[in-house]
Amino acid sequence: MQTAIQETPGIQITALKKAFGQQQVLDGVDLEVPRGKITVVIGRSGTGKSVLLKHVMGLIVPDSGSVRVGNDLLADLGPRALRNVRFRFGMVFQNAALFDSMDVFENVAFPLREHGIEHGLHPGQQGTPLGTARLRGRAREAAIRERVEGMLAAVGLRDMGYKAVSELSGGMRKRVGLARALVRGPEFLLYDEPTTGLDPIMTAQIDNLIRATQDANPGITSLVISHDMAASFRIADHMAMLYEGKIRMNGTPAEIRSTADPVVRQFIEGRLDGPIPLG
């Protein structure tokens, strides 16, 4: 089954360009995100990593180039078909982007309430598929409660469902965001700087959670945006560095670690001297 998962296409980004006004943010990005793996895109702040992630979900339209998700070329899709592609994604936002008008439980339950509990988990994802029967009334509510509480327990937030979003710490917010992204059993999981602003212990905890989620659900294809080198090496199967709007290097963590490319070396070692301009 593992082989079958990896044979289906993941995410293919080809010659992607995007400018905002005079600023060319992405200048021909080519990147392949393999199925069933964690790919981490590293790069300095403000280099367009989050813009790249939003292109993958079709939240931003590129000036040129293409994004292919599985067998779907996003540029060819109408609004409804694009929504169906987004249906297959889960996204963990940089600051969690939790709905502050809802408590923790309702935040995690939200995708289920909107799209239904009846969707089965993705092949390869751990857990019990809920079947395809359309649940209604109390049965539906009970199924949602069971699923949400299971997700909260999986991210270490058992019995925290009643809490208001404003009561949560940064790490708890990220974990709720992860639970919300996972609750419908996505095929693709996107993380936008999941450990930014967290203390080292919490960073390690989130990293473990990302890795454990991937290992427990080998069908998921994960794309992580980060500038935290230690965290990136901990979780990545593949890594790519975004620099001056292009992918500077693409390889395994070992290949990135041992590269002679002065730009990549300066970035991963965090040195001030080198070819990367400061400022």
Partner: peptide, 14 residues
């Protein structure tokens, strides 16, 4: 500004 609108879109909600 807190990306909650993006979060809605990412969940395929208009």
């Amino acid at each position: 500004v807190t990306e909650q609108v993006d979060a809605l879109e990412s969940m395929a909600i208009d």
